[in-house]
Design a protein around this nucleic acid. Sequence first.
DNA 1: AATGAATGAGCATTCATTCAT
DNA 2: TATGAATGAATGCTCATTCAT
Lengths: 234, 234, 234, 234
Amino acid sequence: MTDERTANDQSPWMPFENRRRARDEKREAVLRMAVQVFLEQGYHRATLNEVAERLNITKPALYNYFRSKDEILFECWALGQEQVDDLIAVINRSRQSGLGKLRALVHAYAETMATDFGASLVRFDPRDLKPHNAEKVRAAKRGIDLTFRRYIAEGIADGSIKPCDPKLAAFAIAGSLNWIGHWYQRGGSLTPDAIADEFAIRLTDGLARRSVKKASAEAAPAPRTRKPTKGENR
Amino acid sequence: MTDERTANDQSPWMPFENRRRARDEKREAVLRMAVQVFLEQGYHRATLNEVAERLNITKPALYNYFRSKDEILFECWALGQEQVDDLIAVINRSRQSGLGKLRALVHAYAETMATDFGASLVRFDPRDLKPHNAEKVRAAKRGIDLTFRRYIAEGIADGSIKPCDPKLAAFAIAGSLNWIGHWYQRGGSLTPDAIADEFAIRLTDGLARRSVKKASAEAAPAPRTRKPTKGENR
Amino acid sequence: MTDERTANDQSPWMPFENRRRARDEKREAVLRMAVQVFLEQGYHRATLNEVAERLNITKPALYNYFRSKDEILFECWALGQEQVDDLIAVINRSRQSGLGKLRALVHAYAETMATDFGASLVRFDPRDLKPHNAEKVRAAKRGIDLTFRRYIAEGIADGSIKPCDPKLAAFAIAGSLNWIGHWYQRGGSLTPDAIADEFAIRLTDGLARRSVKKASAEAAPAPRTRKPTKGENR
Amino acid sequence: MTDERTANDQSPWMPFENRRRARDEKREAVLRMAVQVFLEQGYHRATLNEVAERLNITKPALYNYFRSKDEILFECWALGQEQVDDLIAVINRSRQSGLGKLRALVHAYAETMATDFGASLVRFDPRDLKPHNAEKVRAAKRGIDLTFRRYIAEGIADGSIKPCDPKLAAFAIAGSLNWIGHWYQRGGSLTPDAIADEFAIRLTDGLARRSVKKASAEAAPAPRTRKPTKGENR
DNA sequence: AATGAATGAGCATTCATTCAT
DNA sequence: TATGAATGAATGCTCATTCAT
């Protein structure tokens, strides 16, 4: 923590840059500690004192970086959301069948759920946020849900996924994944990657026109289709 | 103590019975209102005042029926757990394949998740309870999880379920189901029964040695998506 | 509780008398239990529920006999005060020297302090009473104090007591005695009578123109320290 | 408050010192006010609000210095106990006969009883404390009692005190002294010093092998520790 | 940028007391 | 007379937030 400070004193050329970097680093450090404490104890039972103490600072110091406890909560969520947004963006850019995209999303999302910020997406309660932010959260959740549905619809359209109700299928899959955020614990017998692998298969196998096992046994190349326009999914 | 009272009246055991029944009814009314408020606002944001006011009584009156806020929380959970215990007991007594039991459990559990007390099983935080009760909750959760795994293992043993890791499969299924407690809202477009039907198929189809569709296609020429005869699932 | 009731029903001839007697007996029973609980736990920590439960009745039942908790407290005190008043009345009527009266008072007061109602004289706080009653208590306390002083003054006048400041002497003696109410416990190694004997000597010996020891040594060749015939002390 | 700032510029280690001192001073101020309110109204009737308001702060501010109401009570008691411990330590170090030590203790203890913190030793109820602290209090009380007994026993051994039962003698003396804490009021006609003088003589005269009066009459220089003149009061 | 101190708002809980039965 | 139920009043305590330094 004091490292940046000293660094700052030693490099007077870019004091501003350094300061801002130091500030951002501290901000992040707060979030990393906060998300941990919030997950560990629950948002309401967790106190800012606890967060501050673990950072070896005092409570009011937190207010240099955040305006309120719920803003901290929101930022924790936002970091997790950012991860998901990125991961969706990558998949969106990829050229795969609907099933392929769905599997990629399941895999990546499962891994995310095993991180602190990822878990914060499903273990924090939007009602603890200011209405303004709560709405952002709800919108983002809807967005993720729609992405699941879209991939499924794409898969149905391109024949990689058996016809089904995308809405309920998405709920089922998302439920399994979100639940990871509740039961996964670091240091358990399962690595996030293993979980992700397993879920990517299991959750989509029932939907696949050809199950993974059979498909790979037959060595049939994954059916590829064009990417349908968004309008088509809806 | 109440003997003179009862003896005094005409129906010796009625008044006492009546009193006790009235008391139990009120206790339950409190729980029904409390679970509603707790789900609606979240345990910490909800105040006993709110619960009491909605019941047209005053806060201290609640203490005639419960010793503390967290005891109310626990009792809400307990009512939900009771439902699940009952439902598992019934399935345990039934003579079905592992797959059959699993499907029956999925169906019944899904329906339970759509009730207030059912949702309280997954939306309340055991850490809000006294250690004593928190442990009971955790034990019960473990119990449910083990039931899922057991049915799967049975299914693998009797050939109705494809070989797989019961632990992860159980997590995946339970996750989907538990998530219902988070998104289901009364008055939505989906009835609990419809959800339960759909989940019973979808979540188990991937595990079944023969998928529902194929199996029914072979057995009966009526390809059903949504609503198979209930008898079939169970 | 029901005993009086039945007795009442069986002897319809004097129902009124019986009722009143029963009522008074219950009233006293309440006071005996209350003083015990109050002493044991302290007035504020003690609840009427506790008192009632130990009597196998319910809290509101107490209100048939007393108007308020502090009235119970006052009545406990009053019973103790009555004892002291009686005991002073007896001594006042006796024909003794001032020293003799003082010793008699010390002895009797010490014994009283070892009773529940006696202890209530010094262990309850008048500020817990309604102003009306608090004033009665204070007046009575002053009365006792004045009695001590009067006996001392009488003793000085009649030569049985060495000249001294009656006020401070009374304080010193009363203090020792009152303190008994704080430390005495039933079942301890000292009997109330033994304590009373000892205090009667010790607290007055310093005041006596002739100490007990010397006096008795002159009168009788049996030097006694601990246990003179009761008659002698009084 | 501005003091630290100025001091800060001049002496680097001052501000911390100053802060701590300021804090300690405030803590003490709280205790001084609290003991006053507690004595005045009784612990249970006194509210932290009252204490805070008299200090021109708000209730929660008190929690910067103490963890709970009963901790404040305990600290009040502790300050008084400290005084007594010190005073006993001094007497223990002195070279006097048992009688001399006893008289010194009586005198000093009497004076202490006329202070707020001294009175708190006997007017607060250990049962209002957490078990942990209550035990400390009881142990300390036993310690004081034993000190009285020890001095008496020493006196008997060295011949300065007439043979007697140290236990009861200690009770009698301590009772008189403790009672001071109940009746003494600032602004009364008696000064603490006068009371102490009087009690030191009166309470020990009965025990002395030679009474003060006689002894001084015989021209034996009274072995005095604390307070020579004022013979008039005696 | 950081801190000690203070505050305001809120909430669970307790308990004497009342009342209808 | 006794009870179950309900209430009002009060209070200790917590904690996010602010402010002067």
